[in-house]
């Protein structure tokens, strides 16, 4: 198996999603990218649906520090503690799980475990996951912190990069969406406008 990149650790989990904190500040995976957590017997697949960088202590807001500095990097250089006082975290929407060899695009029986490691999915796995579009229905029906159209479009764009024929993948996904959203033309148009190459 190819080297998989570890991007964080679960700090909050529910059946529909989990939140993970990144080990390094600002090292969160991009919106719409696929991540996974769990062990080899049962893996959960998530799509990054939100990310944030906040102060470590909820009541303590960062203050502006760059008045006398030349560049943004200089701020961090002169205040090295910042990297420890701030944290980056991201939320992932659970869109499927793997049990043994079988991949299911539906909610898992158990949520993710706290402190589970979160990995970026390698392209082969993304491609494998993209063989079915059942996960689109999960995204469309989820309560999301970002607009649904944006997340659907971002995840499809990301996923298409793992495919050799990006266009064919996007057309197939578009057709699936056209069926799912047959009663909601505006949403369909919004998504199609965002995924076209």
């Amino acid at each position: 198996m190819a080297e998989v990149q570890r991007v964080g650790e679960v700090i909050e989990a529910s059946t529909t999603g989990f939140t993970a904190q990144c080990y390094e500040l600002y090292q969160m995976p991009p919106l719409g990218s696929m991540v996974k957590t769990g062990d080899s017997s049962a893996e959960l697949y998530g799509i990054v649906c939100n990310a944030a960088t906040t102060s470590l202590e909820p009541g303590r807001r960062p203050i502006a520090r760059g008045k006398d500095e030349d560049s943004e990097e200089a701020i961090y250089r002169s205040s090295p503690q910042l990297a420890k006082l701030l944290r980056s975290e991201f939320e992932a929407l659970v869109v499927g799980h793997r049990e043994g060899d079988r991949l299911y695009q539906r909610l898992p029986p158990q949520p993710a475990r706290i402190h589970g490691f979160v990995y970026q999915c390698p392209p082969d796995e993304v491609k494998d996951f993209g063989k079915s579009f059942d996960f689109l229905n999960i995204i469309l029906n989820a309560h999301l912190p970002v607009p649904t159209e944006e997340l659907v479009a971002a995840s499809l764009r990301r996923m298409s990069q793992a495919h050799d024929d990006q266009r064919a993948f996007l057309v197939a996904a578009g057709k699936e969406l056209a069926i799912l959203l047959s009663g909601n033309l505006n949403q369909l148009n919004a998504i199609l406008g965002r995924i076209k190459l």
Binding site: V171, G174, L177, A178, L185, L188, N189, K196, L197
Partner: peptide
């Protein structure tokens, strides 16, 4: 058409992608 609004406000079919997606579905 699956949605009557599609015939009232036709999508931008000059884009081949949109045209291809809608053909056979909506």
């Amino acid at each position: 058409v699956t949605d009557q609004r599609l015939s009232l406000t036709p999508p931008d079919v000059s884009d081949p992608f949109i045209a291809e997606v809608l053909a056979g579905t909506s």
